[in-house]
Simulated scan of single mutants.
Amino acid sequence: MRVGLGFDVHRFIKGRPLVLGGVEIPSDVGLDGHSDADVLLHAVMDALLGAAALGDIGDHFPDTDEQFRGVSSVVLLRRVIQLIGERGYRVGNVDVMILAEFPKISPYKHRMIELLAHELSVRIEDVSIKATTMEKMGFIGRREGIAVEAIVLLVDRVN
């Protein structure tokens, strides 16, 4: 078994879709980034890569590479899952914490869980997504962006 921890943060920006956990959320702001800036999937990818000692998403999908501009983070996640498999691992479970004042996560959480379970080839019961506010403190509390922490368990493919 191997455990990985991931963290990511993106600021809000006008004129972009808000994508979180592979789900587009209606909003007048999105997240700033080179890809679709899906902060949730970025944190999960970093956790996966860390658990397998494969670096981080910047190593594999640098923001200096134009092929990744605007790309769906689901596409990037699929490549990370492929790398994990090549190392002989599969996902056991994933636990995610979203830190955000906005948007309200609960209406979209089940779709995010379903998407992650499907992409990670695990049961819905193996994916946890939680959210908390920052009680109006700091950049998150001022609604300037979103942060996400993720932890994953990798197990040998033979289990």
Rank of each mutant, 00 (worst) to 15 (best):
E119D: 03
V23N: 02
H118T: 14
A150L: 02
L115I: 10
D56S: 04
R78Y: 05
A47N: 03
M45I: 10
V75R: 15
L76G: 03
T133E: 12
V80F: 12
A150I: 04
V3H: 08
R157N: 11
D126L: 01
A51N: 11
I151Q: 08
D36Y: 06
V9C: 02
M1P: 10
I98N: 00
A150N: 09
G138W: 11
I84L: 09
R143F: 10
G145Q: 09
A117T: 13
H34N: 14
I25E: 01
P17S: 15
D38C: 05
F7V: 10
D32V: 04
S72T: 00
V96D: 04
D56T: 07
A117Q: 06
D36G: 06
I57K: 04
A100W: 01
G70I: 04
I113E: 03
G21W: 00
K109Q: 15
V152F: 01
D156C: 07
D46W: 04
L54P: 02
E114Q: 11
I129T: 03
D156W: 06
D8Q: 01
R143G: 11
G22D: 05
R142F: 15
D59S: 12
H60F: 09
A131H: 10
V158T: 14
V152W: 02
R79S: 12
V39P: 00
F61C: 10
R87G: 14
V74F: 04
P17E: 15
M1V: 10
G33M: 05
R111T: 03
V122C: 05
E119S: 02
R79H: 08
V94T: 11
H34Y: 14
M1N: 05
V29Q: 08
P107G: 12
T132P: 00
G70E: 12
G141D: 10
I81M: 13
I81K: 11
P103Q: 08
D95A: 14
G6N: 02
D156N: 12
G15A: 11
L40G: 02
G92P: 12
Y89T: 04
S128G: 11
A43K: 02
A100R: 01
D28K: 11
G70T: 08
L76M: 11
N93S: 13
S35P: 07
P103D: 09
H118V: 09
V23L: 06
M134Y: 13
V74T: 09
L83H: 05
G141R: 12
E114N: 06
A100D: 02
V3E: 12
F102W: 14
I81F: 06
G55M: 08
G30Q: 03
V29H: 07
L5Q: 09
N93A: 06
A47P: 05
G15R: 04
L120M: 15
R69D: 09
I98C: 00
A147V: 13
I13T: 14
